[in-house]
Simulated scan of single mutants.
Amino acid sequence: MTTATPTGRPPADLRSPAQLLAALPYLIGFRPERSVVLIGHRAPLGHGLGLVMRADLPRREDRARQAQALAPRFTLAPHTGVTLAVVGGRRRPGSPPPHAGFVDELADALGECGLPVLHALWTARISEGAPWGCYADPGCGGELPDPRATVTAAVATESGTVAFDSRDELAALLTPRSPDAVACRAELLTRQPASPWPEATCVSDAASVVRAAFERQLRSAGPPTDGEAVLLAKALEVSEIRDACLAMAVPPREPRAREAERLWLTLVQELPPPHRAEAAALLGYTAFMRGDGTFAGMALENALEAKPDHVLAGLLWTVLNHGMPPEQLLDLALAADPTGMSGFGLPLSDVETDQPA
């Protein structure tokens, strides 16, 4: 399993191996285990954080194939090189860190793409006191600091970024709040006409439904009722409404974008397939635009599971897996709302919310 995180995560010190390893949970959204993390250094100077990708450590027979699949993704944006971080395994005294063969395969694959490996690091686990070392220098190594005490952690906390203890814990955010409620809504939606509103007022009526949902969310009114959930599902199927919702993803991390992401996540938890695909695709796009490729990928997987032929989710999934940076999809949001409905009554920067996206 592979996850790509484009630029947008909290900054990390690429020159300090121990600090960089300890910061990995904040760069990919969760604490990695048995993983390789590839960290791109942005051109022109190489000091900035570029594309960050995590993949499961492969079996020995799959090393070369996985290396050849990962390396080309760093050529789609300007990078000066890549740092490799391997998490997992036990180092024997007097021996190089484990998985050295895979690191060599990655170095060869990246070299074929014109990208040098600037540093190759290993740690047994991401926790305070865990041993770490370097593949190229036997004398390089030590113990990791507390990941929560790094500069990256402080910046992440300030911006509302959460690092989960595992990938499964992060993925659990997308599970239904109440399977019984979701089943009930699935039955209601099968009996619902194609549009519950007259054609002449369809867009304005659907916009009113979304606006009311944001108002309930700001009042902390709790999850939607069955009737509200059904109307929201139908509203997101209106192309003009979906486009206006896309536009709410920018500027990323602004309060309005956070409120939008909260609502899309709620609807993923509250709607049945295939209807939840619209909300999941919006959630994936919003997470992608703020630089959280890991959660974006999970949301898009959720959308495609609910509706395999969902066009927007399929497009975003392809973009994400090719390692493209968010700015290449900025125009999708900027051109998405010709009707001027974006925001549904929410101001751009002064929405009050205590819940991070």
Rank of each mutant, 00 (worst) to 15 (best):
R256Q: 15
I28A: 05
W197A: 10
P44I: 01
G48E: 15
P196Q: 10
A233Q: 05
Q269G: 08
L271G: 03
D108K: 13
G222T: 04
L332G: 06
S16W: 05
L170N: 06
V210H: 06
D226C: 14
L346V: 04
D180C: 08
T318H: 11
R91V: 02
T83N: 11
D180K: 04
F164H: 13
F344W: 04
S342Y: 09
L246N: 10
P308V: 01
P223H: 06
L84S: 07
T318I: 10
R253K: 13
G222E: 10
T2W: 09
D350P: 02
A85Q: 04
R42Q: 14
H41N: 11
D309G: 10
R65T: 12
R91E: 13
P338W: 04
E278T: 06
G88E: 07
A257H: 05
H41P: 03
H310E: 03
A313I: 00
F295N: 05
V86P: 03
F74A: 11
A67C: 09
R242N: 11
E215Y: 01
T266M: 13
M298D: 09
A221E: 13
V36R: 01
M1L: 13
P338D: 13
G160T: 00
P251I: 03
T201L: 09
A153Y: 03
I241N: 04
M298Q: 14
P272C: 04
